[in-house]
Nucleic acid binder design. Structure first.
Lengths: 220, 220
DNA sequence: AGCATAAATAATAA
DNA sequence: TTATTATTTATGCT
């Protein structure tokens, strides 16, 4: 449409201040920290050890990777992209598959130096390209990314009191229904299946949150 | 600890590219979009109308506000702060209460120009200060944000047995008092209104929890 | 005016 | 990877 010429806003670029370790930086990293999967150390763990900033045999600059990861996140966010979107877009343009989890792990540096080293240039290139398209307009970016242009957030469902009652009774019987069961409940209540699934997720969440002991003193 | 001199990373500041409308920009905004609350138009709606970039009577520069809102979000994120944190911190340092919802709505420009105009300088000032502390280290930022003892973290209220008795008797009569009633109870007991409100919340939770069946049951 | 909670996103478990 | 939990954001409501 004739979106007006508005897009040439010439907004002053935001300069992000230097970031002292937004990540938790695992300061007192010691013997107590088990490396979950096998015994290959992760970037996020190695990088905090001054001696090993450059991983010996590989010649990998961990500090550089850490910085990039941090910048990557900021740049991703300022493009308004999610990890999922990046993963999907990469999967489409680059060779292998990149899941949301993969992007997440890169940003958190929860990967081996080798993987990081391999992934970094891919992300770097892709991100630069995304930023380039973004210059030309949000629409182009979305096209490049591939997702439908800005899918809208689903309207918030409101359940009827009756429905909630039924849901709660199911929940009391079983807080973790199978996909099958969810489908059935959804049909019975005539709500969207996904909506019902999310309801159970959130209900479990809420329960967990509220089941903490309460703050105020007991009236002795 | 002897965190090494690492912190002086002199990371090259990230320059955020100009952002053509990350927000959904409500492109096909037409008769179908009802303005939820009354008929006062929101910034996000007004700003897309070229003619009205400056709100007439008020002299409010909507375009400026839109830009600020966008930058605010990016800067908030690059500080690693959530809307909730900002809201809480503002509530602590500035006068009135700022909920997570309020921050959310500001960022989405889902507020009236007048409110936005009022909120903007507050956010601007606060954010600049937060960035300043962040320069000095993540720890300082968290202290600034997170109600450190130096700031006025609200002291934990302890109710007298008498007060609790009164509260409980009110609770038995009505577990969900209106705002009006809460105010009155608070005045009667000479406690802060908010404290009383929270007491009722917590009381309801407690009740709910104690009467709960063990939930995470295995689906058979 | 802001709470309660639905929906979306990020992080972790499997 | 895919499945689920945990966290954050957004919105219907009154």
């Amino acid at each position: 449409n004739t979106q007006a010429s508005v897009t040439t806003v010439t907004q002053s670029p935001v300069v992000i201040a230097p970031q002292p370790s937004v990540l938790k930086s695992a300061p007192t990293l010691s013997s107590t920290v088990p490396i979950t999967c096998g015994d290959i150390a992760k970037v996020g763990q190695l990088v905090s050890k001054p001696q090993q900033v450059v991983s010996g045999e590989e010649g990998i600059n961990l500090e550089e990777i850490r910085e990039f990861a941090k910048n990557f996140k900021i740049r991703r966010l300022s493009l308004g992209l999610t990890q999922t979107q990046v993963g999907q877009a990469l999967t489409a343009t680059e060779g292998p598959a990149y899941s949301q989890s993969a992007i997440c792990r890169f940003e958190k540096l929860d990967i081996t130096p080798k993987s990081a080293q391999k992934l970094k240039p891919v992300l770097e290139k892709w991100l630069a390209e995304a930023e380039h398209w973004n210059q030309k307009g949000q629409q182009n970016l979305m096209e490049f990314v591939g997702g439908e242009p800005s899918k809208k957030r689903k309207r918030r469902t409101s359940f009827t009191p009756q429905a909630i009652e039924v849901l709660n009774s199911y929940f009391e019987k079983n807080a973790l229904p199978t996909g099958q069961e969810i489908t059935e409940i959804a049909r019975e209540l005539n709500y969207d299946r996904e909506v019902v699934r999310v309801w159970f997720c959130n209900r479990r969440q809420t329960l967990k949150n509220t089941s903490k002991i309460n703050v105020f003193q007991v009236p002795t």
